[in-house]
């Protein structure tokens, strides 16, 4: 008779794996990707492909060089690649997209210890580095027909209200902007998918989007425009919900979302940049450990009241 396996309980595990979570992220990001190709043309597909490929390759290469276990099968590098691509203008030079991907994976993710260890969102941090390094190409919004089109937020900042797209155009994504951020419809579909699959909880996106809506109301701005413009939908559903760089607690997520909303509004209405979603998420990423600590609940029976 063969020796029986000896192990400590539990002897059963849920079917959920990291790979399945990341696959759900990829599925949720697909509609926005398809929309970007329809809106901006095939070059969008090229940018997405390059970002994903370079992200996966740099993860594989870094782990190979450092003799670490290979983790590309968990699909997290694919998600980072997609998110970074969605945060770039369609006209971005390919080498710059590749550079950004390497920054995201090697500098922001792997140098801090790989998956789960990065304190900031790789795609967002890489985007901000690229905005500083390549400020020209990162802010040139060109439609495939060659007509330059400023983003709605930039138009509003300039006071050029006549050129603004309609609500319907905004909802469908027919406007200037980063390639994956424009189609509100596609992003909502993806976000709802993540909520249904319980990959993310409602707390962050509701707090984030709710704060932006409320502050727009208080400041007398056009609420639907503020919600559909810029990278708010992409940020609130897909990036402010990143596991490793945001609080795991319910109240932590709410505070995180409100913080993101406030900073976004500050930058949009009073800052130098027309858009502030990326900066807001990065700043809140840095505050995450403190928010987590503040919002930790008291264990059962240790004097904590009923909550």
């Amino acid at each position: 008779m063969r020796k029986l396996i000896s192990s400590v309980s539990p002897h059963v595990n849920s079917p959920l794996t990291t790979q399945k979570i990341m696959l759900d992220m990829v599925i949720a990001l697909l509609p926005a990707g398809i929309a970007s190709v329809i809106i901006f043309g095939l070059r969008a597909l090229l940018v997405i492909g390059v970002c994903v490929a370079v992200c996966v390759f740099s993860e594989w290469g870094f782990e190979k060089i450092c003799k670490k276990e290979n983790t590309i099968t968990d699909l997290s590098a694919v998600v980072t690649g997609l998110l970074l691509a969605y945060n770039l203008p369609v006209s971005i030079p390919i080498w710059q997209a590749a550079f950004g991907s390497i920054v995201a994976i090697v500098v922001v993710k792997q140098l801090f210890g790989g998956i789960g260890q990065n304190f900031a969102n790789p795609a967002i941090t890489a985007r901000i580095i690229m905005m500083t390094a390549f400020s020209g190409t990162m802010t040139s919004w060109v439609f495939p027909d060659g007509v330059s089109s400023a983003t709605p937020l930039a138009l509003m900042t300039k006071g050029d209200m006549a050129s603004l797209p309609t609500y319907l155009q905004m909802f469908l994504g027919w406007r200037g902007g980063c390639l994956g951020e424009t189609c509100t419809l596609a992003l909502l579909l993806g976000g709802i998918y993540l909520l249904i699959k319980k990959v993310i909880s409602w707390h962050t996106p509701v707090a984030f989007i709710g704060t932006v809506a409320l502050m727009s109301l208080v400041c007398g701005k056009d609420i639907p425009y503020q919600l559909m413009a810029g990278g708010l939908m992409l940020g609130a559903f897909f990036m402010a919900t990143d596991y490793s760089s945001t609080p795991p607690t319910k109240w932590g997520k709410i505070i995180f979302g409100i913080g993101c909303g406030l900073i976004t509004i500050l930058i949009r209405f009073w800052g130098n940049f027309p858009e502030g979603v990326s900066f807001s998420i990065l700043i809140m990423n840095i505050l995450t450990p403190y928010i987590t600590k503040l919002t930790r609940s008291k264990p059962f029976g240790t004097g904590g009241g009923k909550r």
Binding site: L16, T17, T18, I21, T71, D74, S76, G114, I115, G116, Q117, Y243, S244, P247, P248, T249, K250, S297, K298, P299, F300, G301, G304
Partner: peptide
């Protein structure tokens, strides 16, 4: 596999 900091353990512990 490595911890991804999802917080599932925290949110499912009966004793918080």
């Amino acid at each position: 596999t490595p911890c991804i900091n999802c917080g599932n353990c925290l949110r499912h512990c009966p004793f918080k």
